[in-house]
């Protein structure tokens, strides 16, 4: 008697969201099974990988990242090179320079950066802020305007600023709205409801339900994502059927495991290998929990995760 497992295919499915335009446009979501459960039903759109670059250039990047972009002198060239990274599907521009506690660049400078990247690439683009909510409100609504016609994801609209950011991105400039909440299924749902009530169509919303590096409270990430997928698919909760996008690079490269130098921790071995390990493990984990897209930065991580996705699909 052969193995007789029941299929775990659901009647409900995740929304399909199209990002970018032209030949290189990509679709995320659309599946009616748990992540990589292709034995239950085919998954049409494989999870996608984005490469994060920042308007501050390469100065603070690890050697392997610098080496990959060698010869690039402008942000436009960096963006182009990021778009060509083997395994990458899209580019994420982080307006890190806008941080008032950091470089504190002017809005005009930041928008010039957006324009330069938009003009340089033809792959889909995600634009993310500097994580300072007050600043991001301004930067992201302007960015939505500057990138008009490119069908980008504006990451992110949060509870505090969704009225401005989601309205600009989702209504005024026809972009995709990235709704960001922090590791709580109820908050994730509430934000989707609020953004929908502004008039943004569900097909124009993606979710960042919060992330952390593995080892750093990652159980909350796992359970939030597990529960979101279970509600979206198992209970047909239409307010949670938006595909999920997870920025991984910032989290993974900013913990002790990736930041301690080999001098400080000789027994830990090469620093860059540890950073890649954290990035790869965090990305693989959020994908296993249902992320439809991840944002990474190291070429070795992108290559590995791309190979993993291909082999699992």
């Amino acid at each position: 008697m052969p193995f007789n497992g029941k299929s775990g295919k659901f009647n409900a499915s995740i929304n399909t969201v199209e990002v970018g335009c032209g030949e290189k446009a990509m679709k995320i979501g659309g599946e009616n099974v748990f992540p990589f459960y292709t034995f239950d039903a085919p998954i049409e759109n494989a999870p996608k990988i984005g490469v994060m670059i920042t308007d501050l250039g390469l100065e603070n990047e690890p050697a392997g990242v610098k080496a990959y972009y060698e010869g690039c002198t402008t942000l436009g060239e960096i963006a182009k090179k990021a778009a060509e990274m083997p395994g990458a599907d899209f580019v994420c521009l982080k307006l890190e320079g806008g941080d008032p506690n950091g470089a504190n660049k002017s809005t005009e400078e930041c928008m010039a950066a957006v324009k330069e990247v938009v003009d340089a690439i033809d792959v889909p683009l995600v634009i993310s802020g500097c994580k300072n909510v007050a600043r991001d409100t301004e930067l992201l609504q302007k960015a939505a305007e500057v990138a008009q016609g490119k069908n980008v994801i504006i990451l992110a609209a949060r509870e505090e600023d969704y009225k401005t950011v989601a309205a600009a991105a989702g209504l005024a400039y026809n972009q995709k709205v990235g709704a960001e909440s922090a590791d709580d299924i109820n908050l994730a749902k509430q934000l989707n409801v609020l953004i929908s009530q502004l008039g943004v169509a569900p097909a124009n919303i993606v979710m960042d339900v919060g992330t952390a590096a593995v080892g750093y409270g990652f159980e909350y990430v796992v359970s939030t994502m597990d529960r979101v997928k279970a509600a979206a698919l198992g209970q047909n909760d239409t307010q949670l059927q938006m595909p999920m996008i997870t920025p991984v690079a910032d989290e993974a490269w900013n913990v002790k495991e990736a930041m301690a130098t080999e001098e400080d921790m000789p027994e830990w071995g090469p620093q860059e290998d540890r950073g890649i390990g954290m990035e790869v493990s965090t990305a693989a984990s959020v994908l296993a929990c249902g992320a439809n897209a991840v944002i990474l930065k190291h070429p070795a991580s992108v290559a590995t995760i791309s190979k993993m996705i291909n082999e699992l699909m």
Partner: peptide
């Protein structure tokens, strides 16, 4: 790296 990715899964 692939082993790290898959082991995580």
């Amino acid at each position: 790296n692939m082993q790290i990715a898959l082991a995580s899964v």
